[in-house]
Simulated scan of single mutants.
Amino acid sequence: MSSRTTFPKVLHMTTVPISLYFLENQLKFLQKSGFEVHVLSSPGEALTDVVGKENVIGHEVWIEREISIVQDLKSLWRVFRIIRNERFDIVHVHTPKAALIGMLAAKAAGVKVRIYHVHGLPYMTKVGAKRMLLQTIEKLTCSLASRVYTVSHSLRDFICENKLVNTEKASTIHNGSINGLDTTIKFNPASYSLSRHDLKLKESDRVLGFVGRIVRDKGIVELLEAWRVLKNRQEDLKLVIAGKMEEPSLTDSAYKEIENDPDILYVGECDNVAPYYSLMDVLVFPTYREGFGLVAIEAMAMGVPVIASNVLGCVDTIEDGKNGFLIEPRSVTGIVEKVAYYLDHPEIRTAHGASGQHLVRMKYDQHTIWNALLEDYKFFIQNEKRVVLSS
């Protein structure tokens, strides 16, 4: 058995530190598997938290989410210096702005293994010059990468068909998602004792749920419109909403409705949303665009059927009529009809929940995805012949 001459070094980079939570326990796994793992993002409590919990090395560089030429050049120079000084074997970037800066810096620093992990395509919901600019940036970032990962097979097909990347450069790890799910403990209904009484819900209440950022692109406007129709038809109907209120993208009346409607339970941003899934009868996820749709498999792992938009990512996990329903994006009527169907057919709702739970446990096991990524890393590094890994 050959010995390792040095620990291979990998850098994971995101724009904002909260995005690093998508790699929960994956970073620790890579560390235990013989890699020296670094993370880089803008400063924040989440960065400190991830560094401590994952036992990795952290780097702070302020990165603006929006285009800011002067600040972007400063960020690029600082990232370049870190990458050059640390001599990483792999630079693995996530989120659009960090991806562009990271790939430019890694290319300039001579890093051979440059991975861009595409989580989604923000330009898809933009129009005009902004759409063209964001699409051009995506294409440039893909061209700078030596390998492009996508979080779903449908997203890979899309970026290849639209010539953002060469087909041979793009792949999806296993069945998709960025990190898989821990269905043994975290996303296992048996792990939680939160009851409906804890949220002042009656046992007779039917509970709809939404999880995600509270922004227009997630379909909040259509959800609220459908909600008004449904609650006038159905007694004892409640709506649980979990997620962060982000930049003003909704009307003041929409925010007020979420906060003031006595039948809407807004629980805010949660460190662990799994207990709330256990209270839901149906998850409604009317997003306009998605890379994968993580909340869909989270809900399914908890035995909850999902009504989701027929968009990239969601089509990878929702088998229409088997573990949920796919509706057209922006369709208030679609939300109303499918929710009403589930409320009128509890046996179908239960069967779809069970089917979804089985699918997630079979296709999105966390350790399977981690091991597939680890094998890729080993192959890339051995192919570059920069370090010798023990067999």
Rank of each mutant, 00 (worst) to 15 (best):
K112L: 12
G176E: 04
F158M: 06
K126I: 09
G34L: 02
F285L: 02
F158Q: 09
D316F: 10
C314I: 05
V61L: 02
V215I: 14
P305L: 00
L121D: 10
R87M: 11
I348Q: 06
L76T: 12
L239N: 01
H367R: 14
Y364D: 02
D72S: 08
P189Y: 07
I241F: 03
A254W: 13
G356W: 07
L343I: 03
L208S: 01
L27P: 01
L223W: 13
E319D: 15
D236M: 07
D236N: 06
E60H: 09
K32C: 04
R330S: 12
P346G: 00
V229S: 09
I18R: 12
Q135R: 15
V91N: 02
R4T: 15
M302W: 11
V211R: 01
V16L: 10
P248A: 00
P96R: 09
A108V: 12
L374R: 10
L100C: 02
K53F: 10
K202Q: 03
E45S: 10
Q71V: 13
V332R: 03
L224K: 06
R233N: 09
V39D: 07
I90K: 08
V16W: 08
E257A: 04
T287N: 00
A99L: 05
K218A: 00
K32T: 05
E246N: 10
K378W: 11
K322V: 14
L326N: 04
A226R: 01
P262G: 06
S68N: 03
S195D: 06
S146P: 02
S33R: 03
I258H: 13
V91W: 07
N371S: 05
S75F: 14
A98K: 07
I173H: 12
N272D: 11
I327T: 01
K322P: 09
T172V: 14
H153E: 08
P286A: 03
S19K: 08
W62E: 15
D271L: 01
E257N: 06
V148P: 04
S143F: 09
F29T: 02
F379T: 11
A274Q: 00
V284H: 05
F325G: 00
D376G: 02
T183Q: 08
R78M: 10
W77S: 06
F7M: 09
E222A: 02
A351L: 14
K130Y: 15
D365I: 04
C270H: 13
V306S: 01
K363R: 15
R81L: 14
L374V: 11
I137E: 03
A301S: 15
T251E: 14
P346W: 13
T14E: 03
